[in-house]
């Protein structure tokens, strides 16, 4: 699914206008626990999270997420925006909560990229 379409579905607001949103996203993953993100996510997906500190971007980069959506209208810290711009990872703010947004994206056809097996 194109990130543009995901932003639309999320009623989202792009916080990093310089990043490219014309990219393909293969799946979604939601968590507030960064170790879970690192352990159970698959590359090339979008991360839904309620955390807004710079570590979220670093975690996303290590786990190879293509975009991050902050749920419940949360606004990231300035440092977070800076790193995201540097690493070219689009940040999006959505008014929906984690459950609501996961449901909306999944229903629109975005598969879950949560993996249970260890790699």
């Amino acid at each position: 699914m194109n990130l543009k379409k995901i932003i639309e579905l999320a009623n989202g607001h792009l916080l990093t206008p310089q990043t490219n949103i014309n990219i393909e996203i293969n799946g979604g993953y939601g968590a507030d626990l960064m170790s879970d993100v690192l352990a159970f996510s698959q590359p090339n997906s979008v991360l839904l999270t309620g955390l807004t500190n710079p570590q979220v971007v670093r975690t996303a980069q290590m786990a190879e997420f293509h975009a991050i959506i902050f749920v419940r209208g949360k606004q990231p810290q300035a440092e977070t925006l800076l790193i995201a711009a540097q690493e070219n990872i689009p940040l999006i703010s959505s008014p929906f909560g984690m459950f609501e947004l996961s449901g909306r994206l999944h229903q629109a056809g975005l598969p879950s990229f949560e993996s249970n097996e260890s790699n």
């Binding site: 960064m34 170790s35 879970d36 993100v37 999270t49």
Partner: peptide, 10 residues
């Protein structure tokens, strides 16, 4: 901050 869940070393 999303860390310290005791999963790092695992």
């Amino acid at each position: 901050m999303g860390f310290g869940a005791g999963m790092g070393l695992v």
